[in-house]
Design a protein around this nucleic acid. Structure first.
Length: 609
DNA sequence: AATCGCCATT
């Protein structure tokens, strides 16, 4: 169980879902936009003007009379008709359309509609401008968001709590937490536009996105003391964040605290908790929570079930995951794209690509939306299983469907080409992705570097490494391990040693793998005593050698005809409960057959074998 | 009467 837990923790830290910015530096601390924002705070201090009397007339129809809008096309059609109506419908009707299109996440379309409104002489109100600001925020265009503030001035409109909350959210979406907090504090100080529960939860969500649970909880405590009490959303946000960090106990504590304050959880709260316990492999606890929620008449939905399917799949329990899907169907909850994508990934992880392909075809036949993630999952499955041609077929197929391959798609394919030794094609794809506007990330580089090193193209690898540094990509120890190993294998032990020694100056610490690679490299270069020193050194630095390390040094000693030293280390290895691998065993057997081993050591060697 | 916040996948 512990092992399972550790693996899960490792897996969860390597892939963050909604934490887009965790660990990322803030890139915008001093832009001109900040100045704009500061100018703007004049609004906060100005006296609120008298509320403008509603100009509504009987001519206006309530919203239910307008046709239901489900697509952008609908919206544009309705909008065009409205523009031609005389008298013109009120700005409220236009806001409804804009709001709906924004909900469909077609932010550019909203901006275009807004511009058409202006051209037709329709005067925007506060709501219109708030929607517009929100669209710019979601397009990561805070500069434009803030420039909309000028429009408020021009039109004599007062920005409200929503305006500022939206701006705070915009800053957070760009990882500009400092500006978000500044604006929040200015709202409080100014006194005429106090943050409401939306403002608080937005900021709390921002803290959670960066993994700063402490700040989130601190703000929660402030709310509890103040007039704006935390609600279900606030608690759920933090509970989810704690669960994402597998701090399930803390999450459960906050959960009971919330309930003791009379706030009832909903399906979302339970889904977060179930996700948390599932990631720890605590299936019993997951079952308990499921039973508890049902007993409260809160029923698991497609999200809840997808969490179960996904975590079961990641544990290799695809059969159980299939059972959950069956259960969903029995309960009339349709599995969605995410459910099927998880299931496909589960099959791919087990190398059962045929089964994954079947799920894919089931999605197509059921009319489920097949999205970029679906293709990525299957393409990744084929690549990992050395079926690059099948992967390429899917790649072409997705483009035909108008789906745009992203960085993950290309990274899988680059890796797939490397895996089958087609290093030139891998590089071609690496260029192609950039030509298509998809930026390679550290993962992409890492995969290509590995491929290049394994194919003895060391200088090209070093060139790419330089590119990574120039692009200020996050270069972690894994990248260095690849390069150091490449240099060692190529016999460039001096360069390898230089990289190794330079690690601390880059703020990186060698891990077991780094030491093992260096030890192996030193042995290959005949520098066995230096290798032995390194073995002692790593232990001293709190990095215990593992089986691979011992095998590397033992093999190295035997190859360098230092049998007695090898015997000492075999003994050490056995004492630590580690054992020889196949290639080390072979070497030991050869020694035995040549009678080069002290018979006194035989029982020991047998134990190791 | 319209705008802002919470849950799932590569």
């Amino acid at each position: 169980m512990l092992k399972m837990m550790m693996r899960n923790i490792a897996a969860s830290s390597s892939y963050c879902t909604s934490r887009r910015w965790r660990g990322m530096p803030c890139l915008h601390s001093n832009s001109t936009v900040v100045v704009l924002a500061n100018d703007y705070f004049a609004f906060l201090h100005s006296q609120p003007s008298k509320p403008i009397k509603s100009t509504r007339t009987q001519l206006e129809q309530p919203v239910r009379n307008s046709p239901k809008i489900t697509t952008v096309e609908d919206a544009f059609n309705v909008f065009d008709r409205m523009l031609q109506m005389r008298p013109q419908p009120s700005v409220v009707r236009f806001n409804q359309i804009l709001g709906q299109v924004a909900k469909l996440k077609h932010y550019l379309a909203v901006i275009s509609l807004y511009n058409q409104m202006g051209a037709s002489g329709i005067r925007p109100d506060v709501c219109t401008l708030n929607i517009l600001i929100n669209c710019y925020c979601h397009l990561n265009q805070m500069g434009f968001s803030l420039s909309v503030l000028g429009k408020f001035f021009k039109l004599g409109l007062e920005p409200n709590v929503l305006t500022f909350t939206t701006l705070i959210n915009g800053f957070l979406l760009e990882n500009r937490v400092v500006q978000a907090v500044e604006l929040f504090n200015k709202m409080i100080k100014a006194g005429n536009c106090q943050p409401n529960v939306f403002t608080f939860s937005t900021l709390i969500k921002g803290f959670c996105m960066r993994g700063d649970n402490r700040a989130a909880i601190q703000l929660l405590r402030k709310m509890e003391e103040g007039v704006c009490k935390p609600n279900l959303v606030v608690y759920s946000t933090i509970i989810d964040s704690l669960c994402k960090d597998t701090l399930v106990d803390d999450a459960l504590n906050l959960f009971s605290e919330m309930m003791s304050k009379g706030i009832a959880p909903n399906v979302i709260t339970y889904t977060s908790l179930i996700h948390g316990v599932c990631k720890l492999g605590e299936w019993k606890e997951a079952t308990r929570l499921l039973n508890e929620m049902v007993s409260k008449n809160i029923f698991p939905n497609v999200f809840t079930f997808s969490v179960l399917v996904d975590t079961l799949c990641k544990e290799g329990m695809v059969v159980e995951a299939e059972c959950v899907v069956e259960m969903m169907i029995q309960r009339d909850i349709d599995p969605n794209t995410v459910t099927y994508n998880s299931l496909m990934d589960g099959y791919c992880l087990r190398g059962e690509i045929g089964e994954a392909q079947k799920v894919f075809e089931l999605m197509l036949s059921k009319g489920s939306v097949v999205n970029v993630v679906s293709y990525n999952t299957l393409i990744n499955g084929y690549c990992k299983n050395k079926k690059i041609d099948d992967a390429m077929m899917l790649f072409l197929d997705m483009s035909h469907k108008g789906l745009v391959p992203n960085t993950i798609t290309y990274t899988s394919l680059v890796g797939g080409f490397c895996k089958v030794g087609r290093i030139d094609d891998a590089q071609k794809f690496f260029f192609k992705m950039q030509a298509c506007g998809q930026l390679p990330n550290a993962q992409t580089y890492s995969i290509l570097l590995d491929g290049l090193c394994k194919n003895r193209q060391l200088s090209r690898a070093m060139q790419l490494f330089g590119e990574m540094e120039a692009k200020k990509l996050d270069i972690d120890i894994v990248i260095y391990n690849i390069l150091i190993e490449g240099l060692c294998i190529a016999g460039k032990i001096e360069s390898a040693r230089d990289l190794f020694c330079g690690l601390s100056s880059k703020g990186l610490r060698p891990n077991v793998r780094t030491y093992t690679i260096m030890i192996n490299g030193l042995c290959i270069g005949g520098l066995t005593s230096e290798a032995e020193n390194l073995l002692v050194e790593m232990e001293g630095k709190g990095c215990s050698p593992d089986g691979c390390t011992y095998n590397a040094i033992i093999r190295g000693l035997i190859s360098n005809k230092e049998t007695s030293r090898a015997m000492v280390l075999i003994q050490q290895m056995v004492e630590k409960g580690l054992s020889a691998d196949a290639s080390t065993t072979e070497l030991i057997v050869q020694l035995l057959s040549k009678d080069e081993v002290d018979p006194a050591l035989l029982p020991l060697i047998k134990e190791s074998l």
